[in-house]
Nucleic acid binder design. Structure first.
Lengths: 237, 237
DNA sequence: GGAATAGTGTCTGTTAGACACTATCTA
DNA sequence: TAGATAGTGTCTAACAGACACTATTCC
C-alpha cells in the first residue's frame, strides 16, 4: 500500500498506543532495589508492574515518564535515561501497545511514596527478590535495565546518582559491589578513584565502629554529563 | 483552539502515530556512506530523509523496519539494532509521530537499490557530505547513529558486518580509520587482531601493487553475538 | 635498484590485579 | 589489649602507543 503525504489522513490508519514505563533503581538498606506498583485492574490485576502509563499528545516522552511517575508513585527529581523500546504485538491484551522504557536512579531517602487510584500498593523490591509473575513483559524490561545499569556502572559515574552529597569510600565501594554482585579489591578501587580526580575531600569524617572514614563529595564538574570513570575493563562475554 | 476540559480529556485518549526509521551504513569506495531517500510529497517534499514508515498493527518494530526498507529501497538482509526512540511533539507537522530509530550495516555490493512510488530517488551519501537540510529531525537521528557506530566499533565486532567474507588486514584497518576518522598504528592494530583470535588465515592472497596481502576470514563463532574486540580504550569526552 | 605495499620486533610507560601491610577508632 | 574498620605500598604481568625495522611484489 502506498501512502502519500498529500492525502494523509490522520484518522485513516489504526494506531498503536504508546506508553512509557520506568524502571527506578535505588539503594535501600545497602541493597539494590526496584520500585514496583501493584495493579488494581484488568489486565494483570494484582500483579506487580513497573510504573508507567500512556503518553499524552502534547508532551515529550521523558516528560510523560516523569508525569506518570509522579502520579503513580509520588517519586520526582530523578536521574533518567531512555532504555529501549518494546513493541512486540501481543504484549498487552487490550490493544497494540508500544512501550518506551526508561531507567532511573534515585536517592530513595529523599522520596515519599504515594499510592494512586490505579494501584493497590507501591513498594520497593530487591532486584533478586522480585515478585512473580510480573505484569506484561515487565520481567524482560527489568532484566534489560539491570544489565544496562551494570554495564554502565563500569564506564560512567552513574553510581553517583545513588549517593548522598557526602559519602565515604567504603560506602561507594559497597554500592559497586552490590550492583555488580562481586567483591572488589579495596586498594585498587581507592587508587582508581584517587587517580580519577573525581572526588574532593570534605575534611570531615564518618564515625562508626572502627577507624572513622573520610567523607568525600564529587567535584561538581564531574557529577553531571558523561565523564568517564572506568573503574575497570568491561568483561568479555 | 481553546483548551477546554472537554478536549483535554479527548486528547488524552488520542494516539500518536509510530514510525520506524533506519539509518543504513555501508562502505562504498572506501568511504562510510548512508542510504537516503528523496521525498516526493509534503511534508518536506524534495528533502532527503532516512528511509522508514509507519508500523502496522500486527508486526514487530524490527519487522516493520525491514519491510519498509525493502519497500522503499530494495535493501534486505542487513544487520540491524535499535538505536533510540525520538518522540518530541512537533517533529512531524502532520500529527504526533513517535519514531523508533534503528541503525543498520550492510555490504553494499550485495544490494541493488530500488526507488519506490513515494520517492524521487534513493542514494548513498558519504557521512561528511550529507545533503542539507534533511527532512524532519533526521539530522539529529543521523548524528546519533554515527556516534553510536563509532563508539560500538571500539568494543564490538560491528565492523565485520561491513566486510565481505574474505578480506585483508590493511582493508580492515582502513575501515576502522574511515569510520573513526583518524589514523591507527599498523603494528598495534595487527597485533591486537592476532591476539584476539578472531581471524582465520585463508591461505590465500590479494594481489595489488606492492606485496600481496594475506586474506583472512572471521571465525564463525565470533562473527555472531556480542564478542568483544576492544581495539582500544574508549576516549574520554 | 626503487617505489609501493605488507607485515614484524621491541622499547617504554601505564595500569590492573593481588596481597601484605599500616592506621585509628571502641570496648 | 583485641576486634573492627579504614586506608597504603608495592610487586608483577599485561598491554597500549610509538616507531624503526624487515619482507615481497612490480617496474
Amino acid at each position: 500500500m502506498t501512502e502519500t503525504a498529500e492525502n494523509y489522513d490522520a484518522s485513516k490508519y489504526e494506531r498503536p498506543s504508546v506508553t512509557v514505563d520506568v524502571v527506578i533503581f535505588s539503594l535501600r538498606s545497602g541493597r539494590l532495589q526496584v520500585l514496583m506498583v501493584q495493579r488494581k485492574h484488568w489486565p494483570y490485576a494484582d500483579h506487580w508492574a513497573i510504573p508507567g502509563g500512556f503518553v499524552n499528545m502534547d508532551e515529550s516522552l521523558e516528560t510523560a515518564a516523569r508525569r506518570e511517575l509522579m502520579e503513580e508513585t509520588g517519586v520526582h527529581d530523578l536521574y533518567m535515561e531512555q532504555l529501549y523500546t518494546f513493541g512486540e504485538p501481543g504484549r498487552d491484551p487490550r490493544t497494540r501497545v508500544i512501550s518506551v522504557a526508561y531507567f532511573a536512579l534515585i536517592r530513595s531517602e529523599e522520596q515519599t511514596l504515594q499510592v494512586s487510584e490505579e494501584s493497590n500498593d507501591v513498594r520497593w523490591f530487591p532486584v533478586d527478590e522480585l515478585p512473580e509473575p510480573l505484569a506484561f513483559d515487565h520481567d524482560k524490561i527489568l532484566r534489560f535495565a539491570i544489565d544496562r545499569l551494570r554495564s554502565k556502572l563500569e564506564y560512567t559515574t552513574l553510581a553517583f546518582q545513588l549517593l548522598p552529597t557526602e559519602f565515604t569510600l567504603p560506602k561507594l565501594k559497597r554500592i559497586y559491589e552490590e550492583i555488580l554482585g562481586e567483591k572488589l579489591d579495596k586498594a585498587n578501587f581507592y587508587r582508581k578513584l584517587r587517580d580519577s580526580d573525581l572526588l574532593e575531600d570534605t575534611g570531615k569524617f564518618r564515625e562508626g565502629r572502627g577507624r572513622p572514614a573520610r567523607l568525600y563529595r564529587f567535584r561538581d564538574s564531574r557529577v553531571e554529563g558523561d565523564f568517564v570513570f572506568r573503574y575497570r575493563e568491561a568483561k568479555q562475554k
